[in-house]
Design a protein around this nucleic acid. Structure first.
Length: 281
DNA sequence: TCTACTTACACCTTTGAATAGG
DNA sequence: ACCTATTCAAAGGTGTAAGTAG
């Protein structure tokens, strides 16, 4: 753990260090090794793989809010020509929205009891979206970022005791249609909703997909994933402009007050901010 | 002509209400 | 009255092909 200041050192020494672990790390790595792509649509598309994390080191009786947002990996966009190529400067950032885990706020013991699923997160390319989905630019790369905030209410968050965690293997390219057939194959193989497109299925399109040697490799990765090979975050620094290091990233953010009742707010990485709470079915 | 995006579609899983049984 | 299990229809999540936009 690399602490930024003596003030943070005293803060951390008062409580056990928070740790966020990516539970389905093996599946993410299968996609990452090929180049993860996430479909974004006008009406919002779920992520696959979706983020599934566990948290430790919280104070059992304190309340916390857990959030997720998306951060650009670098400051340029891509185009397709055989493979993804850099195609100039990135588009201006759309409104940065945050997905608040529906259990928020909840006690530390609640969060640590079981892993947290971000299955309901939806991505859109519609900058006028009214459903609170996370807005991204197509042909840009992003990675999800997780925030753990000690707070009694999702609307008034003290940004002290605020920690952020990211996982390099969760970086992805936002696309409106799949560019890499290997990614398509992996998704069809492992997303139950895409079962109709699997080889041997009754769907007419199923035989159009090229077979890939990558699939067996991916299955091996998944086997290890099923044995739970989660990866735990620790404190280090890497700039989004750089290729992420193997290690995970967690940053202590500046202490400040934040009122979620506002429509658009700034987060400590100088992007505008919209609170979003998913609907429970 | 090329690339990026949108839409309709068939196929599938998930959800939740209704019902039955203990 | 209460709980659990089962059934089943509706809602919603998929990638694809074909079309549109620029």
């Amino acid at each position: 753990i690399h602490n930024q200041s003596s003030q943070e050192e005293s803060l951390l020494s008062a409580a056990p260090p928070q740790q966020v672990t990516l539970e389905n790390s093996g599946l993410w790595k299968s996609f990452h090794s090929i180049g993860t792509e996430m479909i974004i649509t006008k009406h919002g598309r779920r992520m696959f793989p979706h983020c599934n994390v566990s948290i430790t080191g919280l104070q059992p009786f304190a309340n916390y809010v857990v959030m997720m947002d998306m951060v650009p990996v670098e400051s340029f966009k891509y185009k397709v020509s055989e493979q993804l190529l850099v195609a100039g400067k990135a588009e201006p950032q759309p409104p940065c929205r945050t997905f608040m885990h529906p259990d928020s706020p909840a006690t530390g013991s609640h969060w640590m009891k079981q892993s947290l699923s971000f299955l309901k997160v939806k991505l859109t390319n519609n900058t006028l979206d009214q459903h609170g989905h996370i807005i991204l630019h197509s042909m840009h790369r992003y990675y999800p970022r997780f925030h753990v905030v000690q707070a009694d209410s999702p609307y008034i968050v003290r940004w002290s005791h605020f920690q952020t965690f990211t996982f390099p293997e969760t970086a992805f390219t936002a696309v409106t249609a799949y560019q890499n057939p290997k990614i398509t194959k992996l998704k069809i193989d492992h997303n139950p909703f895409a079962k109709g497109f699997r080889e041997g299925g009754t769907h007419s399109h199923s035989k159009r997909l090229p077979s890939s040697s990558q699939t067996e490799e991916a299955k091996t990765d998944l086997a290890s994933d099923s044995q739970r090979s989660p990866k735990t975050g620790h404190y280090s620094t890497w700039a989004p402009e750089q290729e992420p290091p193997e290690s995970l990233h967690a940053e202590n953010l500046e202490m400040q007050e934040y009122d979620y009742s506002c429509e658009e707010q700034m987060v400590p990485v100088s992007v505008s901010y919209q609170p979003y709470r998913s609907e429970l079915r």
